[in-house]
């Protein structure tokens, strides 16, 4: 009997501690997992920074199955967490289903889009990945000596095609005759975490003459960067600043400031303004990384050209085509 009582006691304690977490924010990662050195980890870093600076607490979960997406959203909302932040576009449809049941909870979908008029308690945060990719594409074309550059994507989904398409446009803007070799790692979510295959793809592209390779492939990209360093060519990282991984070989990284988005959502707390936010070059939501690790690789001329293009994109003088707007790309065929 005492065993049962002890058991019930610990359950009650857990339930209490869950209840006490009133109005703490919650963070739900996508299937890739918390420590993917890329997208989800950037979200975790943002949350961690918020917790350190404010002394606040947040709860997070790495889901294991599709059905857990809705479950995690509902359980966090029911237990008073606010706002509930999710990473990955896969949450958008589910948030649209769940949000009306919890009108007092604010939901944030990063990379997803939920109709703001139908769901006033949802904030959709989108990034203009094509703009950032355009800039690193320009850098790739300027750094390339062979006139052939590579792209290694993770899973073949529209979002990654958006990266590839922006990159190809940037390359063509500098060198209209350049060849762009584009490969996707796979067709299942395992493609996000397959550095061995990333390495194989990089080798294949190098044998075709590529001397700069952009990896937009989560954990798979680590294999691409490693191989590029081993073979003495240049690579481009993604999402987080990955320049430090192989100083002198990583030309730059296409930054996607998921950490800033999470940090700001958590800082706003319950007062979070909902709607749709598009974070592009102008908002510094995307960009290219420049630090001491790649300072020697990017000359003043290159920097000036890219900064000029950046200003023109912000002004609207250059428009970078977004693959997902019409499922086609003028600079690259898939």
């Amino acid at each position: 009997m005492s065993f049962v009582r002890k058991t019930l006691g610990s359950v009650a304690a857990l339930a209490l501690s869950a209840g006490a977490a009133l109005a703490d924010p919650a963070l739900i990662y996508d299937l890739g997992g918390k420590f993917d050195k890329s997208f989800n980890e950037a979200a975790f870093n943002g949350a961690q920074r918020w917790a350190e600076e404010t002394g606040g607490e947040f709860r997070d979960i790495e889901i294991q199955s599709e059905a857990q997406r809705e479950q995690a959203l509902r359980r966090f909302a029911e237990n008073g967490f606010n706002p509930v932040v999710t990473t990955g576009f896969s949450y958008s449809t589910i948030i649209a289903n769940v949000a009306p049941d919890y009108p007092d909870t604010k939901f944030v979908t990063i990379d997803g889009y939920v109709d703001p008029e139908a769901h006033p308690n949802v904030l959709s945060i989108l990034f203009s990945e094509h703009e950032g990719s355009f800039l690193v594409g320009m850098l790739a074309a300027m750094a390339s000596e062979s006139g052939t550059v590579g792209f290694v994507g993770g899973m073949d989904i529209p979002l990654i095609r958006k990266f590839a398409c922006g990159y190809a446009q940037g390359v063509k803007a500098v060198n209209a005759d350049a060849t762009i070799i584009s490969n996707m790692t796979g067709t299942t979510p395992a493609a996000w975490n397959d550095p061995v295959k990333g390495s194989e793809l990089a080798k294949a592209q190098i044998s075709q003459g590529a001397d700069v390779i952009f990896a937009a492939a989560g954990g798979t990209g680590l294999g691409v960067l490693q191989t590029a360093a081993d073979e003495g060519i240049l690579s481009i990282g993604v999402d987080s600043n990955q320049n430090y991984l192989h100083p002198g070989s990583v030309l730059t990284s296409m930054l996607k400031r998921v950490d800033v988005a999470v940090y700001e959502a958590m800082s706003a707390g319950e007062e979070l303004e909902t709607g749709v936010q598009v974070l592009g070059l102008a908002e510094e939501g995307v960009g290219y990384a420049l630090d001491e690790n790649n300072a020697e690789l990017i000359g003043d001329e290159m920097q000036a050209a890219v900064n000029e293009a950046q200003a023109k994109i912000i002004d609207g003088e250059i428009t970078v085509h977004d693959y997902t707007s019409d499922d086609s790309c003028p600079a690259l065929t898939f």
Partner: peptide, 21 residues
């Protein structure tokens, strides 16, 4: 898995939708 991915990304996905669904 490859077939499903192809069908979802290229044929069944509503235009403009990000998710392969």
């Amino acid at each position: 898995a490859a077939l499903l991915n192809y069908v979802l990304v290229n044929l069944m996905r509503p235009v403009g939708a990000m998710e392969p669904a």
